[in-house]
Amino acid sequence: MAGIAQLSGIALECPDPAALAAFYSAVTGWPIVYAAPDWYSIGPSEDAPLHLSFQLAPGHQPPTWPDPASSMQFHLHLRVDDVEEAERRVVELGATRLAEQPDLANVRVLADPAGHPFCLCPRPTTPETPS
């Protein structure tokens, strides 16, 4: 089925786009492919069909989770080979492990340096529905 549009990127609002781009660049291995004072993007290449971007939002307030009065709106799932090793490495880069861990045996829930929640999920060993 043909769609109406193609997803070209996801943008996270944050108080420091350069710092958050550097964090996710280190986590994903994607280089910074665009840099301006108010907007940074990372991706496999400058002309890749999908980029993860970071937009300046001086009054940014990170979501709280879990919080019945708030929601995290969305979060990223990042597949990794070793969840414990990946958690150690992203914490060294500035991530924070969140107190609530709904599936500690399999997944880690953290917040990036700007407070956006993300999950470290094990890379599947057999084909399955994407996380």
Rank of each mutant, 00 (worst) to 15 (best):
M1Q: 03
A35T: 12
C121P: 05
L110A: 07
Q101N: 01
Q73K: 02
D47N: 14
E84W: 00
P44H: 08
S41Y: 04
A11M: 08
F74L: 14
T129K: 05
W39Q: 08
A26H: 11
P68H: 12
V90Q: 05
P122W: 00
H75N: 13
A2D: 14
P102E: 08
D38Y: 08
P130D: 03
A48I: 11
A35V: 00
W65C: 02
G59P: 01
P62D: 03
G59I: 04
G94H: 15
A57N: 13
L52G: 07
V83H: 02
A111H: 11
P124C: 12
S70T: 05
Q73W: 02
P31I: 02
P17C: 04
D81P: 04
L56W: 10
A26I: 00
P58N: 06
A114Q: 09
A11G: 10
P37S: 08
F23W: 13
A95G: 11
E128M: 06
D16P: 01
L104K: 06
P44Y: 00
S70R: 10
P31T: 08
Q73Y: 07
H60D: 03
F118R: 07
R79L: 12
D81T: 15
L7M: 01
C121Y: 05
T129F: 03
P68I: 05
D38I: 05
I4F: 15
P66M: 11
S131P: 02
V109D: 01
E13W: 14
Q6G: 01
G94F: 08
G29A: 07
P124R: 01
G3V: 08
L110S: 09
F23T: 04
G115A: 04
E100P: 00
R88I: 03
S70L: 11
W39K: 02
Y24W: 15
L104S: 10
T28R: 11
W39G: 03
M1L: 14
S41E: 15
T125D: 13
P130K: 02
A22M: 06
R79C: 07
S8P: 03
G115V: 04
A99V: 12
L52F: 14
I32K: 10
D112K: 08
Q55F: 07
P44A: 14
S45Q: 11
L50P: 07
E92M: 08
V33F: 06
P63Q: 07
L104I: 06
L93N: 05
D103C: 05
P49A: 15
P58C: 09
H77C: 12
H51C: 01
A11H: 02
P66R: 11
E13P: 14
P130W: 07
P124S: 10
A57C: 13
S131R: 05
A114E: 15
A48D: 15
G59W: 00
A36I: 00
I10D: 02
I10A: 12
P68K: 13
Q73M: 07
